[in-house]
């Protein structure tokens, strides 16, 4: 067991867990933040994506020790004060179907817009092709990202 401290959704947070535990399970089981989803556990599907120091990070393959002294944002924290431009765009475009992959989609898009507020179609394709959606919400995700980017991102 190790004591690990990070800033989670704006709050300093300390957990006492095995330092190899993937961040995903620390968020979901230790801290009870269940928006971040388990899809594959292997870094393939992107459902578990969170922002770690602003980078899209697959929490299922990120040992919690790598989060030490980092800033973590999950979907619960993204629009806590006021909905993020992406969340508004997601509602406007009615993106989700079952909704299970959507936390990973939104967090990946948030990392994209943070680094590149006006992404080209190709840049959107490249970034978002790493996040799977079994329900097929891809065309709407694309529209929503463009809508959010036009509104100036955030």
């Amino acid at each position: 067991m190790a004591s690990i401290t990070f800033v989670l959704n704006g709050k300093r947070t300390t957990v006492d867990v095995d330092s190899d535990t993937p961040l995903l399970w620390v968020l979901r089981d230790t801290l009870g933040l269940t928006a971040t989803k388990y899809g594959c556990g292997e870094g393939i599907c992107g459902s578990c994506t969170v922002l770690m120091d602003g980078e899209a990070t697959r929490s299922c393959v990120t040992p919690v020790q790598l989060a030490e002294e980092k800033t973590i944002v999950t979907l619960e924290g993204l629009g806590a004060e006021r909905l993020h431009a992406l969340q508004e765009a997601w509602i406007e475009e009615e993106v989700p179907q079952c909704g299970y992959c959507q936390p990973g989609q939104i967090m990946t898009a948030a990392a994209l817009l943070q680094a590149n507020p006006k992404p080209s179609d190709k840049e959107i394709d490249e970034m978002m092709s790493s996040v799977l959606c079994r329900c097929g919400t891809y065309p709407r995700i694309k529209r929503a990202i463009k809508r959010a980017a036009q509104g100036g991102g955030q």
Binding site: D29, G32, G79, L83, Q87, E94, G99, Y100, P103, I106
Partner: peptide
Amino acid sequence: MKRLDTPAKVKGTAIFGIDIRRPGMLF
């Protein structure tokens, strides 16, 4: 019409089966 389930799914408050947490539960 706007879907009633969209806001929760976008804010991360939607509860799927895997998200259920009960006092004292085991996995």
